[in-house]
Design a protein around this nucleic acid. Sequence first.
DNA 1: CCCTGATTCGC
DNA 2: GCGAATCAGG
Length: 231
Amino acid sequence: MSWTDERIDQLKGMWERGLTASQIADELGGVSRNAVIGKAHRLGLQSRPSPVKANETPKKATAPAPRKPAPAADVEAPRAAAPAVSAPAPVRAPVAAPAAPAAPAPAAAAATDAPPPPPQPRIISVGPGGFLRQGPGDQQAPIPPAPPRRLVPAKPSAEIADKTTLLDLTERICKWPMGHPGEPDFHFCGEQVNPGFPYCVEHCGRAYQAQLPRGTRRPPPPLPFGGPRVR
DNA sequence: CCCTGATTCGC
DNA sequence: GCGAATCAGG
């Protein structure tokens, strides 16, 4: 994969919106987290609270450890004295949680004289599967619909809550689909994977069948996706 | 262990 | 320019 203009735009947008490099990486696909970070820096995007940056580098204090095997006789550089004054607390960008389905206040809608909704700084619309709906450039926030007369808890959470959505998938999350894509409660298994496989142990058993000799009567084939679709 | 971003440096 | 390897903090 190469960095096309479009992909660069997507990178910029997501980076500025506060998505982590990992999220950006598998959102874009075909690139690693490192690639995203590297590109972001090359683009001049920077800042964002880094766990390993509370200290400034005056000159070249911290020895970055030689990439090549140390040439034997090597004196461990003494750790530079930490500066007395610590930087101000790193402040997380005040953006809404990127992927999490909005958690509705349980009894929020009860109050009839509820105060007006606090204006959200940014609006991220979420599709049926839980994915972020965002255009390539993504600079423009989606036009918010006309304000409802009465506030109602966000819909998706009830069905989708605690379900593993597309955005929850990682290298070690079972990706076995549950239900059918497009349906409101479509999600993924979400179990810990069988190491080295994209599925958990149980679903590996479904996904990988032993190769039987030719002509052998095949056992009832477990169908993926929860069986044939009935309409 | 998992995660995060930063940095280096061979390609 | 790219990104794997590595570092370092949470």
